[in-house]
Design a protein around this nucleic acid. Structure first.
Lengths: 123, 123
DNA sequence: CAGGATCCTATCCGATACTG
DNA sequence: CAGTATCGGATAGGATCCTG
């Protein structure tokens, strides 16, 4: 949505219909901004990580939710998944270009909020 | 990993403890990235809006969730609320400086996703 | 118009158990 | 190690009615 690009034209009754739930992007947005999606994306911004590393990294996440979140994000083309058929198996996750693209504003978001909430102690 | 924001105070044995659920920022993050929070913030970026305007603007939101979301965001200091004691009453909402600060990466996020999903054809 | 109060349902999500 | 499957409790969220 471009800055001041509120259509605001058509008097078809709906004056501010800007973003809808039926917009295809909102599905991705929902996944990204899901309870764990944002943390997964932020975690993967620094390194590719294996499943258990992600689990350790993101405090409080259950294996179920991690797997579920990863599946959704992979389906959306935000993260890739590489399986090495060893014993025991190793699965590594990382961000696609799209994922990195999306992770950037997310990190910025988190950073701004954190900075705001800890004034003085940061930087 | 440490994007500059996280203390990363060596927890006992925890190697990747970057962002936790117990971080005070994650509460705000949760509100912002709640199902409707992001849309409210994006909606308010262009204009201050009244309650019913927000409801019209954000397709699919119920009054309950709008009120609830606005309350949470106001409590976090992201949006302000102005009541004009007229009849009928008018309540206008807008972004605080913090809210605008946070809304920026959110808009960027939405914009990047939208752009990716509609290559070539701008809506 | 702006919402609170209630009720009720869908889903989220954790715990547990099981598989390759 | 990296999951899947299932169950059940908690909670998010919608619908409806009601109030200032």
């Amino acid at each position: 949505m471009e800055e001041g690009a509120q259509p605001r034209q058509a008097e078809t009754g709906k004056r501010y219909d800007v973003f809808h739930t039926d917009c295809p992007a909102s599905d991705v947005v929902d996944h990204v901004t899901s309870k764990w999606g944002i943390w997964v994306l932020i975690a993967l911004r620094s390194n590719d990580l294996r499943f258990y590393e992600l689990r350790e990294s993101i405090q409080g996440i259950s294996e179920k939710m991690l797997a579920q979140t990863l599946r959704a994000l992979a389906q959306d083309g935000l993260v890739w998944r590489e399986v090495e058929p060893t014993v025991p198996p190793q699965v590594t996750y990382g961000l696609t270009e799209f994922g990195g693209d999306v992770g950037e504003p997310l990190t910025e978001l988190f950073d701004r909020i954190t900075r705001r909430l800890s004034p003085g102690s940061e930087r």
